[in-house]
């Protein structure tokens, strides 16, 4: 996959505006629990660390899906769950190492970079989240 969102924890304030925006897109209502990312509170609150979908090249979610519902879309840019194929079995959620896939209304949802306009990135008040091209960080 060619794009992903990366986080700079030192700029994250834990405000969860990203989670609220994401959960609203997934469910039509607000609850950070349904966001396709999460924020870990570590070291007695000293650290808020955003955990995001890695858009893995060798994605476990895609490999464990029994109905091949997780497909590469947008010219190889992102893995997306085909809602018509998903049977809600929960295997992708279970084997995502970052715990950022959620089941809502008996269907799985994973970060698909909002099909373009990435809400978590655009609404973050501090610039803690960035959409990057793969390899960009190492250039």
């Amino acid at each position: 996959m060619t794009k992903k969102i990366v986080a700079d924890f030192s700029l994250c304030t834990g405000c969860a505006i990203c989670l609220l925006a994401c959960s609203e897109r997934v469910t039509g209502g607000f609850n950070p629990r349904y966001a396709l990312m999460r924020i870990e509170n570590k070291m007695d609150g000293l650290v808020n660390e955003p955990i995001l979908c890695s858009q893995c090249t060798n994605a476990y979610c895609q490999q464990v899906c029994p109905v091949n519902a997780i497909e590469v879309v947008n010219n190889d840019q992102v893995l997306k769950i085909n809602q018509d194929k998903c049977n809600g079995c929960g295997l992708c959620e279970k084997y995502c190492p970052h715990d950022v896939i959620v089941i809502h209304d008996k269907r799985a949802a994973k970060c698909d970079l909002c099909d373009g306009e990435v809400r978590c990135v655009s609404q973050c008040p501090t610039g803690a989240l960035q959409l990057v091209e793969r390899g960009e960080l190492h250039e």
Binding site: S10, L11, C12, T13, G14, C15, A16, I17, L20, G45, L46, N48, P125, T126
Partner: peptide
């Protein structure tokens, strides 16, 4: 070390 914000608040008036 950094700013902290309450739920959905961009002000982030707390620091930690």
């Amino acid at each position: 070390l950094r700013d902290v914000g309450c739920a959905s608040c961009p002000i982030r008036c707390s620091k930690i």
